[in-house]
Design a binder for these strands. Structure first.
Lengths: 145, 145
DNA sequence: TTTAATTACTAGTAATTTAGTATGAATTAT
DNA sequence: ATAATTCATACTAAATTACTAGTAATTAAA
């Protein structure tokens, strides 16, 4: 019942980009220094975020990444679902799809559906802006964390 | 973000034992036939349930297992937590323990705490009796599933 | 036009976890 | 005694996770 490092790190990357947003592109090297995640691993994470349209990226010297939208326009749930594939607690239930031949007879399915719903509803309550505000409140002037 | 087969199967075993409760011990062979889970794998599952005090077990000929309590006395969350270890979405947060040196500075921790809470609150809303009733409602007279 | 810095892409790998299987001992009713 | 069962321990194969490696493409600046 765990969120993987990809999902957790992706949130930290997005928060980092929001906190250090100057309109310029931010290199993975900078994020790596602040977050303690290797550039190589960050590449994988931002590639996924980029393909989802969540980032603007630029190659070459002075290249890097920046948010494609304002922090309040990202739902935390969307970021997590992109990174994790889905947040479903059971394989037989992905999104609103039910993938099980015995679904009609399955007594626990509705229980799992309910769990799936509370999880997704929770993560969709929050936007990136909420996490950014929380970071500012906690760390005051040190946005490295 | 998945519940493992141990957790899922344990619920099915408990439901099965509840549905077929006659006061007698029920052999794993019977549960295996009905649920399509090998006796050997069931052994692992019931051992955990037994050690948690959720089952009464008896060795030897005519031996087997039965529920230690009434179905309404088992919280589904307790069964899942016993089988999964915990239901926490992140390693740094197990139960009410926070295991991270940066916890004080961590902006996402309260977000994960909230997720942990909605998950545990949900699974603790239900008892085994709820799942049993659901099974009866769906399958009418065929309790094999 | 070269150079340095960066992302983009594809593949590989080591560690961990999951989902079982295997073997044999202990126990119990018949 | 025998057959049926749980109990205990160890083993294993497959999948997943969490990275690492190498190289190509792109861009700004010297």
């Amino acid at each position: 019942m765990k969120i993987s490092t990809k999902g957790r790190y992706a949130l930290r990357v997005m928060i980092d980009l929001a906190l250090h947003d100057t309109g310029e592109f931010i290199a993975l090297r900078d994020i790596s220094d602040r977050q303690g995640i290797t550039v190589k691993y960050l590449e994988q994470i931002v590639t996924t975020l980029n393909k989802a349209g969540y980032l603007r990226s630029m190659r070459g010297n002075n290249g890097g990444h920046r948010l494609a939208k304002k922090p309040e326009e990202y739902r935390v749930g969307d970021i997590l679902r992109i990174m994790e594939g889905n947040l479903s607690p059971v394989e037989c239930l992905i999104g609103n799809e039910v993938n099980c031949p015995k679904a009609e007879e399955c007594a626990t399915l509705s229980f799992w559906k309910g769990l799936d719903k509370v999880v997704n509803d929770y993560v969709d309550q929050y936007t990136l802006a909420d996490l950014v505000d929380q970071t500012k409140a906690i760390s005051a002037y040190d946005y490295s964390i």
